[in-house]
Design a protein around this nucleic acid. Sequence first.
RNA 1: GCUCGAGUGGUGGAAUUGGUAGACACGUUGGACUUAAAAUCCAAUGGACAUUAGUCCGUAUGGGUUCAAGUCCCAUCUCGAGUACCA
Length: 998
Amino acid sequence: MQYNFNEIEAKWQKYWAENQTFKAENNSDKEKFYVLDMFPYPSGAGLHVGHPLGYIASDIYARYKRHKGFNVLHPQGYDSFGLPAEQYAIQTGQHPAITTATNVKRYREQLDKIGFSFDWSREVRTSDPKYYKWTQWIFIQLFNSWYNKGTDKAEDIETLITVFEKDGNATINAVCDDAIAAFSAVDWNSFSDKRKQEILLQYRLTYLAETEVNWCPALGTVLANDEIVNGVSERGGHSVIRKKMTQWSMRISAYAQRLLDGLEKIDWPQPLKDSQTNWIGRSQGASAVFNVNGHDEIIDVFTTRPDTIFGVSFMTLAPEHDLVLQITTPEQKEEVEAYIEATAKRSERDRMADVKTISGAFTGAYAEHPFSKEPIPIWIGDYVLAGYGTGAVMSVPCGDQRDYDFAKHFGIAIPNVFEGVDISEEAHADKDKTIIANSDFLNGLPYKKAMKLAIYELEKLGQGEGKINYRLRDAVFSRQRYWGEPFPVYYVDGMPQMIAPEHLPIALPEVEKYLPTETGEPPLGNATVWAWDTVANKVVANSQLNNTTVWPLELNTMPGWAGSSQYFNRYMDPTNEDEIFSKEAMNYWQDVDLYIGGSEHATGHLLYSRFWQKFMFDKGLVPKDEFAKKLINQGMITGTSAFLSKVFLDNDKVEEILVKNPSNYSKEVKDDLVVLVGEVKSVYLSKGICEGRNTNSRILKFINSKTSFSSDILNLISFNIQKSHVNVRFVNSSDELEFKSLKVDLETKREYKDAEFITEEDGTFKVFREVEKMSKSKYNVVSPDEICEEYGADSLRLYEMFLGPLEQSKPWNTAGITGTHGFLKKLWRLYFDDNGAKFTDTEPTKDNLKTLHKTIKKVEEDIANFSFNTSVSTFMICVNELSAQKCTSKSVLESLAILVSPYAPHIAEELWSQLGNKESISTAPFPAFDASHLVESSKEYPVSFNGKMRFKLELPLDMSKEDIEAAVMSHEKTQQQLQGRTPKKVIVVLGKIVNIVG
RNA sequence: GCUCGAGUGGUGGAAUUGGUAGACACGUUGGACUUAAAAUCCAAUGGACAUUAGUCCGUAUGGGUUCAAGUCCCAUCUCGAGUACCA
């Protein structure tokens, strides 16, 4: 019986689908286990072998947990809103929904071929109105909430209104917009409805605000900070500028501290936690208020070093700071305005790239030092960022390098407030072990004490307080795109109103064009049926707009991360139309036990999801305030590109002879050169030829063998070699080019029909190889379909795991798959030979059991450590050993099938059924490890001399240290090694090693 | 610049708490089977010298701790990821 993997895999994939083998129930006596993958964006290119890596790992884990008796939830879906489908729509007019559906279908086919144990009955798609209904619903919940710092959680907006009606806003301790004017209860009750709404908007967890945003003109949309890489858009690499726009924002800053604290209770990779910590950027210090001489205005600054407050010799404001124009003196006006204009012109990117140039301008105004009451000059400088802190700093040149450089550049004084520290060359930023000097009441104090005292004194003056500042900004939530979730929002007199949840979903309207309108409105501005009828409660034609009952709807859509911030919860109850999920489903599944996905989502999806989860926790919707207990980042699989080296004539020389100075050369030379150019056009060299010594003469010899040239031309001309990609599918496991299949490469559209190949001595042609990112343009993409076709899904699954540690990035090389494929064939031959089944009811031998239980132990340890690569080699060792032992014991082979089943489920199912089982192997109990089979009576001790192993000696394990020493010392090889010397010391580690020193 | 991670054969990578470096594969070489190829099986495979036994050198580099270091400590170099004037 042959291992016919194509037939076997098709058979079991069909069986699983028909029997809904992996459908998870929302209630069960079994313990739950939730294994989640980051759902894919279905791109037009389909999957390559790098994509399924994480899915294979999570599938192994999910299948293993089923064997261990858990009720496993292992869903999959699609993050199907996104820019590529929209851009394709702009180019072709094709509706993004159609493109998306086509891509989803293709993804599903590819995923099915790999044999994942997904519960497809729970599939979600973020672009499905049935799904985004609940994304809209959460948006409404956020709108109807505010963050109470007193209780440290989100609360219903009604509770805020109640307080306003009773006490005004004086007692409210909320996370809200800066600088909300104080009002009393009387004030509040006398405010117009519109005024009340405006005020409430400043407290809501999602709010409209005029914000400075990252505007990408090429994409016609706003981008979040994490969508910008190196100053250009992540998608497409277009430039980004700062622009003020009215946008929806999410008050994620309210959760900054809780997002930080939460990291401690989740088992996520440290680098990922670190990048979230950096992103949130907590810094502890103080705010200090400086009065401005001759003005009512004050300058509020944040500092992490209040202990150095006596070292302040100037203040610096960001050029964009509101106060700048008010305080600038008439004499300085011209200079300041010129400077502001100059900085405004510089793009964010320029400012970032150019850190070294120091620039600024003096405003002519002075602030008053809170303690010394000395006047302090106020400057503006672009090293102070408007977006961080208050946009103003108290500059302490002796303690901060940037302040120091600024002071040096403009000749400002640099007072030293540190005891015994030299600041003639650079600032002294070190805080530990530093004693404060020249600082009045802070003199002689170490950093920590000085800091406390300075804050205390500031508070006493009413000019400051201890403060914690976060880098984390509120997240802009509006996008000027078509292919995203519409907001459930309409506008009455310019004020946003939520549509009642019972009328959701608000479906995307049809538009003729997917581009922004001519007046610069987002694509939804093109929709003709996009107005809200507050009587009929439905979307109606724009022509019915009457500003009494029919109002305009929001034209922006939500960003890509909206749909992905709650999908993991929706999987628990994905078809529920009445609630986002039922209480029962949520109480049963609780949270994700294992989440596998890429680290590129560290400060995007994974931060926003944690934020929404905490909000939903505050609202009592979910029982856990962290959605995923354990997270693993799978590494990237890179491609191994192949290169041909092509021969070129030295272009300058050719030009010289034929174009520039043809008269200098004979007709013969010119004629020969023309022929030569034609001959060389498609000559390729094998790797060995390029690396050999006489490459040039080899080429000459080859060319001359075809047409003879005069020695004149051959002396004149020289050859260059250039490497160009060749499709990896034409290269075999020995890096040799396969001429047979290489005629016309359809992907590179390059013809090799007339090409000449200069081969190695043995007639083979070797290519160059290099590891690069897997990408279409590098012709190194390998699709899982071809692999499944040729070697089978089980071989693919094993090979992807066998490549190396899950979290590490590693190169793909199709050649190696013969290893795991060969293993599966060998496994098969353990059960069957040409005559059929080999297994019998014979009792397993001691060796059989030892091999089996060794394997069980190792595999369970490996799965617990997510070390899937080593368990594949353990299987190989196991099969090698059992083959050598000629094991035919049915009980051993049955256990082996279950062990392998999470990794190679198709072959395992087939073996299981051939062994006579009627049910799927998927819930068969995992073999129990029995240590008694591994008990050894003796150990082959390595005997080392000065740490170098020389020989091995088999000794009983229960032998005492003294007896071992005696046995080793009396051994002839020991005497041979010592050559008469007496050892200084003999170290015996029981069960491990013997080391003889001397 | 800062933060984090990593450097082991021709290649991917193994190596609990410091305890036989290179498991398991790929590739390469030789052999068996075959008219031939594929498939399969067997053997060798870190380097150098010796080719029988053996000896020396080897985990990026230089030091250190230890009976014993890929593993721990210090310094240096290289690569990768994240972040960037954060007051």
